[in-house]
Amino acid sequence: MSETIVMGPAEVRRALTRIAHEIVERNGGCEGLLFVGMRTRGAPLAQRLAREIAAFEGAQVPIGALDISLYRDDIHHLRAQPVVQSTDIPVDVADRPVVLVDDVLYTGRSARAALDAIMDLGRPRSIQLAVLVDRGHRELPIRADYVGRNIPTARPQAVQVRLLEVDGRDEVALITPGEEQP
């Protein structure tokens, strides 16, 4: 197994700053916006985006955290259930532009689950998707509106986003399985 660091702390920071600006630009400001981070690592990313926007726009975008465990489509395939975390969304999603935030976009199945989870809470005006990394290999017709970095990958590879809040450091690693080199 070999690991390559494809984004370091500065690159993560710059990508988030750019996404924050893109969100404000695309939405013509941040009126009514709601950021919803998908647990686990989408939640701190949503907070960081909101902090960026607070810094350059002076406005506080409300932040929620979403757990999608109850909406997954693979319950029959797993050997153990994932731990259900709380879903904490401080405002009503109805009629708001909602930005879903996650660390990696891969098959699109988690994003699909998140869309259903949000819709069950109300009828947002729109839902946009922001991800730090898009690694390709979609299995559903889903795309991200904001992407920090496109990283071409092979399926057996893994992309691991590590964040200060969860993992103690900011970086994105590309992991390639294989025999240990002697």
Binding site: M1, R41, D74, H77, R79, D102, D103, V104, L105, Y106, T107, R109, S110, R135, H137, E139, T153, R155, P156, Q157, A158, V159, Q160, V161, I175, P177
Partner: peptide, 18 residues
């Protein structure tokens, strides 16, 4: 969705990347 799970799942028969 970090795909490190992809790695962990490789060995398990019948599991897909999704």
């Amino acid at each position: 969705m970090t795909a490190s799970r992809g790695l962990q799942q490789r060995g398990a028969a019948g599991t897909s990347a999704s």
